[in-house]
Design a protein around this nucleic acid. Sequence first.
DNA 1: CGCGTTTGACCTGCGC
DNA 2: GCGCAGGTCAAACGCG
Length: 374
Amino acid sequence: MEKQNPRELPLLHSGDFPNQNSGEADGARDESGDHVKPPITELDFFSNPNQSHDHHQEIKNLSSSFDSDVNTGLNLLSSSSGVSRTTDEEKPKAEMNRLKIELERLHQENRGLRSMLDLITRSYNELQGQLFMAVQKQELQNQREKKHAVMNPQTWAALDVNEPSASDDRPQDLLEPQGNTTEVVSKERYRWMIQIPGNHTSVEDGPDQTCQSQDTTICSKLDQSNNEEQVSEVPFRKARVSVRARSEAPLTMDGCQWRKYGQKMAKGNPCPRAYYRCTMAAGCTVRKQVQRCAEDKSILVTTYEGNHNHPLPPAAIAMANATSAAAAMMLSGSTISKDGLIHFPNSLPYASTMAALSSTSAAAPFPIITLDMT
DNA sequence: CGCGTTTGACCTGCGC
DNA sequence: GCGCAGGTCAAACGCG
């Protein structure tokens, strides 16, 4: 697989959805060589023996009717024929009607086949998601074993140079898996991932495919719910998820308790950027930045960073869901569309872009994924 | 009095 | 090395 520019994070291409011009998208994907997912083409649903037979039978019937009736009827219009004119005019009309009905029936059948293709595609993505999670889990397990063999938990304080305040909590996080709520979030995220048609997780490329070189930082930081211990190894400081929402309120109600610890004027934006820390639990390292969009002040950009070490209230779960799912999706190695947007045709009303905060992205040593809920 | 916000100072990373 | 900008700290302040 090609080494990706760490700044150009792969997101989902809207054209990848099989129910939207599947042929072209899959063809393009094959050429790029970035993904090894077998292309879902029309062959997939024609491969069903029963369907295939029926469909071909229909086509055969249709073509034979064209051959035997239509052409002959047209020929009969010639003056040399001995058939009466009224019979000649009625016959093509009746034939036309029959063909229209036939065509309508084929359209309906086509719709049925398409919905079946959608189902198959979803199943495929579901399996792919499961495979991805399994590989991630196994990798995590391997690395955990390696680290436990090399160091003891106290080493974390020395390793976590980026967040001194959080270093005390790391070993605890490792030894004590997060609570039920976080587990729900993980499951939800997983569900979210597999709902994305055409989500190409290239886990088949190899055991280290998702965590190589600079990509390591992305996946280790983003999938913090299960890769927390990789944090110390990475050059990136943190992966962030930014949420853009239209709101007149100075703060987005995300269900968590936040304490403001700073405010700064950011370059290129007349609106100040506020810094908040999660205060729902002692030692929670989650931070967020809130800033109004320079172009449209009614849009509030909230950037989350870190991983809650405590159960979340229901209202916060939704947000954590969205953000962690977006992060997980970023992990998955999907590609970004030309317009930088991801579309969720089935269930999710918001799009995701690879836009970053206007003033921080240029210098930010970490990837930022934006959920655009405006 | 406790908690949260404000705000200026300080630290750090990066580009020139 | 210097300047700039982002991020954080902590004392001062306000409010219930």
